[in-house]
């Protein structure tokens, strides 16, 4: 599903340096990425999503070489194939839950908002147990509910790859488990692949594979 080779990335200032000689994730695999802060985990996710482009090397997702696509196509590819779940949920305060879930459809032309999408959004909310909160605004939700809404938003376009950046980092232990279960169920139901960055070593046992980012700093391949 994901295949990275000889990747080198440098932030504009040149201070931060990331080198990934080899990195692959198979289809339907659930992979956790761990590593100390500042080791480049989030940068890796951004490179895979095509938000950042590497200096050298290639990034392929689902057999498409993301790193060599032009900007607009790379964006369209991301919208169609990759769902993002963030640590801070990143819901918009001024939209209610339903509008937050539908928001990606409203800001890009690549996605078409129709009745079928709306129905699917409701079904997803049902699954996530927030169907009765759709008209609420993020302020009135608990952290768990916010993250459910954020997962709904990420899953709605039916991506084949879900990138979760510390998705459980802001949740209490009970919620962590519930959200992770929901995430795993969803990934399974959608036949998707999951790449999750986490600090939480307790959760690692649930993943198929764990990659310690320490390796990349040392130039190792995974």
């Amino acid at each position: 599903m994901i295949s990275i080779s000889s990747l080198e990335f440098q932030h504009g200032t040149g201070e931060f340096h990331l080198r990934v000689p080899e990195f692959t994730v198979a289809e339907y695999e659930k992979v956790a990425v761990i590593g100390p802060s500042g080791s480049g985990k989030t940068t890796l996710l951004n490179l895979i999503a095509g938000i950042l482009t590497p200096k050298t090397g290639t990034v392929s997702v689902n057999h498409t070489q993301v790193s060599s696509l032009p900007d607009a196509e790379r964006r369209d590819f991301r919208i169609a194939n990759i769902g993002f779940v963030f640590q801070d949920f990143e819901l918009l305060d001024y939209l209610n839950v339903l509008d937050n879930i539908l928001h990606p459809y409203r800001i890009t032309r690549a996605l078409l908002l129709n009745k079928e999408v709306r129905d699917r959004a409701r079904a997803l909310a049902e699954n996530m147990d927030i169907a009765d909160k759709l008209q609420r605004y993020p302020d009135g939700l608990s952290h768990g509910e916010k993250q459910r809404a954020a997962i709904c938003r990420a899953l709605l376009p039916q991506p084949k790859l879900i990138l979760a950046d510390e998705a459980t980092g802001n949740l209490d232990p009970d919620n962590k488990q519930v959200i992770l279960d929901l995430l795993f169920d969803s990934v399974r139901n959608h036949d998707a692949t999951l790449l999750a960055v986490t600090h939480d070593h307790e959760l690692l046992k649930h993943f198929d594979r764990v990659i310690d980012f320490q390796h990349f700093r040392n130039g190792a391949s995974v």
Binding site: R78, I79, F86, E90, L92, H103, P104, I107, T108
Partner: peptide, 11 residues
């Protein structure tokens, strides 16, 4: 917020 909608796929 801008970063978010950018990540969500907004140009």
């Amino acid at each position: 917020e801008i970063q978010t909608i950018f990540k969500l796929g907004c140009s």
